[in-house]
Design a protein around this nucleic acid. Structure first.
Lengths: 210, 210
DNA sequence: CCTTTCGCATACCGTCGGTATGTGAAGGTA
DNA sequence: TACCTTCACATACCGACGGTATGCGAAAGG
């Protein structure tokens, strides 16, 4: 072959499988995508797929890991640009809402993820990817006295759940399994909505509502 | 037949299908349950199933409707026992967390629901069943000045998402698709945790944290 | 140059959701 | 009571799917 060695070709095939399966999973949903479609789009056969992954669910898991990593990177980058801890939390939430509006994230990470891998595994992956930072931020805010002292784990879960639902809601009612409206609509202003949802005056306590 | 007329027998078959499929969906998850298992457990054949429902997803939809109705009834009953609007909201949230801890609700309503029917349809069903009351409660609280005046729709979504995640978390890490621990464990004290999560002093503003 | 390894293709299998058709009892009608 | 219609299913079957076992040819190693 004129292209680089075996390792190069191997990685190329693997990336093609990840890229095409991600696209199909995002647009049609996990259940509506057949392996035949994936391998056809990737230009390989089922033999290649099962050589790289342990099955359909394992392929989905790899895609989900990729998506979660991207979201975590965006959120962390936006949050870390802020110096003040409270502003870091707010910026991080806004960044998550912006990222969560993307169809990939929406369908793969928020809709199919828990059902395909089971909630426990999905939660563990989310914890490892991004929720860990959220816990850190909340801990910092508690230590600084910005929010009332409470167990951080429940706070993190509640805030995480609220953000997930908000992302799904802000993305509009466009999702594959249903009737599905125009996918190319201008996407409701997620950033603006997120900003409107956060308090103008910096609060002294976060606890009461939780 | 010695049992009542056709209508009676028909309803009996339908209920058996709903009961057994609900049990199997709850314990194994939607994807891991085959129609053959369902009809065998219900003591009928696939012909009966397709005579009553339009397919597997439609059967699941009927089960989900049933589950949502039960949850909504419990929540409404608990909330309506309180006179004060704020106490109604708190009691309703606690009741939801208690109900959401049940494995049926957990797997069917919170995990598989959005993936099987699509998020939009799932959201519409939830809206019709229970979220509508949540919006009403929040509106009342805003009108009474208990919480700061904001658009209620975002508030309702955030709170709903937080409650859903909380219910999944409080139920522990036991779910079918994963390794799944002892299903009969004593269920972490959901009511107590819910009470601990809500503020002791009645707040004047709910907004800041949202 | 020969051998081994490995990345992948081919061929095949059991099972699944879904459908088309058959059937016998319940219910109406004379 | 005899007949006919309706209806609530059962039976038989199909294409497609996820998954597996095996074959093969090119690249790496000696």
């Amino acid at each position: 072959m004129r292209d680089g060695g075996r390792a190069r070709q191997r990685e190329q095939t693997r990336q093609a499988l990840l890229r095409e399966s991600r696209r199909l999973f995002a647009t049609l949903g996990y259940g509506a995508v057949g392996l035949s479609e994936i391998v056809r789009a990737a230009g390989v056969t089922k033999g290649a797929l099962y050589h790289h992954f342990d099955g359909k669910a394992a392929l989905f898991r790899a895609v989900l890991e990729q998506v979660q990593e991207e979201v975590a990177r965006q959120v962390a980058a936006t949050a870390d640009a802020q110096d003040d801890p409270w502003e870091r939390l707010v910026a991080g939430c806004q960044a998550f809402l912006t990222a969560g509006t993307a169809p990939d994230v929406r369908q793969i990470m928020l809709v199919d993820g828990p059902a395909v891998l089971g909630w426990a595994e999905w939660r563990a992956m989310d914890e490892a990817a991004s929720a860990r930072h959220l816990t850190d931020e909340l801990t910092t805010l508690i230590e600084a006295g910005t929010i009332v002292r409470r167990p951080v784990a429940p706070l993190a879960h509640l805030l995480s759940g609220a953000m997930n639902e908000a992302a799904l809601w802000l993305a509009g009612s466009t999702d594959p399994p249903g009737p599905g409206r125009d996918p190319g609509r201008p996407v409701t202003d997620a950033g603006g909505a997120a900003r409107r949802l956060t308090p103008r005056p910096r609060p002294v306590v976060l606890g009461p509502s939780f």
